[in-house]
């Protein structure tokens, strides 16, 4: 049930937290979401390693409607090349104002999921196209 109109609610939820409790409150919400709701995913990544990370994100983006994303594993890093972010594409296609901190949720939520799994997460770009990566926490600077 990957209904793209749910992106409207995700965007509105971020805006609600931001308007009520500021960036700090929104970040606390994202951290708790990563730590609590996604705890099973962190366990899965911890147990399955980068192969599990690669498989999860490949399946994830295959199910999200409207995105153009390539997932690849190069040695000790899984990279997500997001050419078209499905959420931002859908929001813009329907004239919705994208909440200004929208892209930050990937940093905080995925960053928390990664940390809880003994990994680290990075992102560059945004606003509809970005590159994200997961790598073991102890490794040196991730390749971009």
């Amino acid at each position: 049930m990957a209904a793209p109109d749910f992106y409207f609610a995700i965007n509105a939820t971020f805006r609600f937290f931001y308007e009520r409790w500021g960036e700090e409150g929104l970040t606390r919400y994202w951290e708790a979401l990563g730590r609590e709701y996604f705890a099973p995913l962190s366990r899965h990544f911890r147990e399955g390693g980068l192969a599990a990370v690669e498989e999860y994100w490949r399946d994830f983006f295959a199910a999200e409607p409207g995105g153009e994303v390539t997932v690849r594993r190069d040695g000790e890093q899984v990279t997500l090349e997001v050419r078209v972010c499905p959420a931002i594409r859908h929001l813009r296609a329907h004239g919705r104002e994208v909440m200004p901190l929208y892209c930050r949720h990937c940093d905080v939520v995925s960053g928390t999921i990664a940390r809880e799994a003994g990994l680290r997460f990075g992102r560059e770009g945004g606003d509809g196209a970005c590159r994200q990566w997961f790598a073991p926490a102890g490794e040196g600077e991730a390749r971009r």
């Binding site: 049930m1 990957a2 999200e64 409607p65 499905p86 939520v109």
Partner: peptide, 21 residues
């Protein structure tokens, strides 16, 4: 990224979080 495929899961979790916090 938070997706729409498991939206109902994190939507439900968000209700509990808001009520709790």
């Amino acid at each position: 990224m938070i997706g729409c495929q498991d939206f109902c899961g994190h939507y439900d979790w968000t209700f509990a979080y808001l009520q709790r916090e």
